[in-house]
Design a protein around this nucleic acid. Sequence first.
RNA 1: GGCGUUAUAGCUCAGUUGGUUAGAGCGAACGACUCAUAAUCGUUAGGUCGGUGGUUCGAGUCCACCUAACGCCA
Length: 570
Amino acid sequence: MTRHLITSAIPYINGIKHLGNLVGSQLPADLYARYLRGRGHEVLFLCATDEHGTPAELAAAKAGKPVAEYCAEMHQVQARIAEGFGLSFDHFGRSSSPQNRVLTQHFAGVLADAGLIEEVSQEQIYSPTDGRFLPDRYVEGTCPNCGFEDARGDQCDNCTKQLDPAELINPRSTISGATDLEMRETKHLMLRQSQMKDQLNDWINAKADWPVLTTSIAKKWLHDGDGLQDRGITRDLNWGVPVKRGDADWPGMEGKVFYVWFDAPIEYIASAQEWVDAGKGADWERWWRTDKGADEVRYTQFMGKDNVPFHTLSFPATIMGSGEPWKLVDYIKSFNYLTYDGGQFSTSRGRGVFMDQALEILPADYWRWWLLSHAPETSDAEFTWENFQASVNKDLADVLGNFVSRITKFCRSKFGEAVPEAGSYGPEEEALIADITARVARYQAQMDAVEVRKSAAELRAIWAAGNEYLQAQAPWSVFKSDPDRAAAQVRLALNLIPLYATLSAPFIPDAAARMLAAMRVEAPVWPDDVPAALAALPPGHAFDVPEVLFAKITDEEREGWAERFAGKRD
RNA sequence: GGCGUUAUAGCUCAGUUGGUUAGAGCGAACGACUCAUAAUCGUUAGGUCGGUGGUUCGAGUCCACCUAACGCCA
């Protein structure tokens, strides 16, 4: 038994995430966590909300609330939706937690002691009216490239050109509208990632088993141009972790906070502390300190491809550079993007399905199954309503749901609602048991390798094997001439249901629970021994015929949803 | 402009270190069955692997160039 630490990239606080965000990190992380728990491993599965930075301040301002209050509310919203999707976090923390504040300041201190933080002076826009320096997005003005009057400090929305705030013509503060802006010299901290380039390079090169998406992005950042660049880790904001050197003040850094990318991944560690402080765990160091037992932990991270540079380079630079015995990630599973009907999901245009809306129209299992069985592992994947309807109806309703339905109802009509006792197994039954045994081994191999789509395909094949068996043996025909033989066939088929439920639980936990409840199985065990698992329901074991597990999606529903979520035209 | 990823049957995707007749699911056609959510099971028909040119006894699988989509950077 290995101990497994699993983290999902932490979703940003400003608003509800769409299905693409979900399938890119939280959902596959949950799949893996549930699988490992199911197999009896000790798992710590952590996530959190990423709360600092300019977008949070802007979103709070738009909502007319103090940013701390806004974040607290949105954290609750995201936590509730995550629960709705069955995301089984051991703790869902907050990057604005006091634990993360202390830890972030600690890392900055030890990195500075190690000579890995550099103070640099730069000119930045200052607003005397607002009494503060203005980060990119707090400055708007006329685009020097196209003349668009409402260009943002970091990018022009009209011509999409990336901008420096100092380039804007007639710049103004988005806080107060003040135009008396001036350039002032200010100091910022840079993390000297370039000093660690060789160390990071060796580390990445040793990860031959990582997804090519992960390593190719890392190598690009390592080797492109002049190689890995130093990065600023401070910003002129109020909302964030105040810049300190450990618990000491940092001269010249008054009023500044750490840039969000620096404190966000540290929250992975802080979340474990929060987990303990919330009374849910006893010892976080055995998960994170290699001198306290974490050297026996296998740590797997899940994230979308946009987060790969931070997790392959910046955060490892923080960990390695500290010189302290923190646990480094062992495996990084990264995902491409999910597109919606040929385009991008768009929050502003209401295009695509967002997590709260998804749960309004269908149970979580439908989404979990489709998203995971179509996870964008090797390239971007596309969501279409036609594909969604076809996949869900076929896989969940016809193959799995109908299997449970047909065998429980047949048994009820011929033998009553209890596992029949008569008859014994023959070569056909042995063949099925052998087939299932082989398939379960393949399923486990794919899950162990975090091959999400392939795992789903193998699971589906296991479901189909039950239908193949029934079709070939036809107990409804056999029953007419040899009821005892039919009884044995039904007994085996009924025993497939708890096996299916246990294997399927990582993908479709709610349906799996209903299957187990119907079969009156209290404590499911992972089928490490398939023949034994297929004898778990003894003759005479009473069960209930369950309600329809998965209702089919109708054409009318599909069309209505397609229209509802198409988004507004520009 | 640079870099990266992708480009395989109508659709969604597999194809380990190059090696006999390129695989799966869906969809389609045909057949079987009738226990079941008009569900299931089987059979068959569909690709020469984006294009061109190389390396090799042999390439979807390596190299070069080109094209297209997406992304990152500039």
